[in-house]
Amino acid sequence: MRRLLRRLAFLSLALTACAAAGLWFWSEPARPEVPVPPIHVTLDEGQSWFAAELVQPQDGLTQLPLLTSGRASAGKKDMLIQEWPGFHAEARFRGSSVTVRFQDGLNRWRILLNDGKAGRIDVARPGMSDLHISGLAPAEYRIRVEKISESSMPASFGGILIGPTVQPLPAPRALPRMIEFIGDSDTVGFANTASTRDCTEEEVFSATDTSRSFGPQVASRLGADYRMIARSGIGLLRNYDGAAPLATMTSRYALALPSEPAAMRLPERAADVVVTGIGSNDFAAAFAKDEIWQDDDSLSRDFGTALLSFLRDRVRENPGAVQVLLAFGEYGDRLVRPYRAAEAALRADGVRVVLVTLPKLKRDACFWHPSQEDHRLIADWLATAISSAGT
């Protein structure tokens, strides 16, 4: 009996130790870094050191010729005012220093030198300042500046500038194809780098990286440029929870700045592929008593009519473009059925159209948004669909 009791005691201790070890090795997912540092320089192994600092706007600098993508409106003193996500600009120069001008206390930006091979700088809420990069090895550089956060209101980008000792070079050539992505927070990449669903507002800001959302991933794989017309909470007919009923995608799509309807939109190239993935917010929350819809069936019918009208407008604006319809299948037949009907109607119109119906996503990021794994999955499906359409 004593021997049995000793064995049981030993087994109990072993199980306790195993449990303790499990608790020791099992940790909560890493949370996004907060507060977000105003400037962060990343140098990979073998890259040359350089300096980057935010300074007061400097006089005597010359604007480099730019290649820009993304909706924008012209501001004062060569400023480009933008609000939709994914805005990016590129330039080329030969020398050892360059400056990026901001007037933006809202957003996060990423600056890539030679596609990141010569260095990367992340900037958060730079305000009215110049990012001065110096100490580069004298050489020819391609610099890319991309907004990676979601704007809550318009902000200004002041261009890429050089001093008198730096040689300007022509702007990079535009890529042969443009893909436009239309959607909501899932398209924006809302908190897509987070690995937890419970987040603070600052953690969402830290974890959102539009450049790593499915749209830019698809464009990169296919050697194309991209433009993003997307906004968190927006729907085609009904925003999330019925909010701001006059500010749906139907009324906001054509605007240069979704918060300023009077702003003049700068010219933009037609898209070769249009990916429309809108509607999740239309069906995501219960109806308020004062809404015109009180059941999913009536909303689904009206959504289908509006979706086809919206898509036909995109066809007229982008003649010959492939129309890719992106339906989030987890919302069920009420969302998927209108997309199927729109696909059939466009095909009858003679439009090149592809329907992609996504499977259920893990949605492990903040507030049940798609994670990095989800975005890779969506990019896989879309890249395959676009390639199969022969673009």
Rank of each mutant, 00 (worst) to 15 (best):
A247Y: 01
G235L: 04
G279S: 15
T250I: 05
L311P: 00
D313Q: 11
D241P: 00
R231Y: 13
G223R: 06
G277N: 10
D302M: 07
R238G: 01
V354N: 01
D241V: 01
V336F: 05
G332I: 10
A263K: 15
A345G: 10
D282H: 14
N239C: 11
R227V: 15
D296C: 05
S259G: 12
R227Q: 13
V324C: 00
D225W: 04
S280M: 13
N239Q: 06
F303R: 05
K289F: 14
P245E: 01
L346C: 10
I292L: 14
V353Y: 02
A306I: 04
W293L: 01
M249S: 01
R334T: 09
Y253P: 03
S298E: 12
A306N: 06
V218S: 04
R227G: 10
D290G: 05
G279W: 11
I292T: 14
G329C: 13
Y331V: 08
R347Y: 02
A341I: 15
S232P: 03
P245S: 00
A230G: 07
P338F: 04
L246E: 11
D297H: 05
A288H: 14
G304Q: 04
P267D: 11
F328V: 11
V353K: 08
E343P: 07
S300C: 05
R352C: 03
L311H: 00
V315Q: 09
L307S: 04
A271H: 07
A327E: 11
Y253R: 04
A286N: 08
D296S: 09
A243E: 06
S220N: 06
S259N: 12
V354D: 05
L255M: 10
A224R: 08
F328M: 14
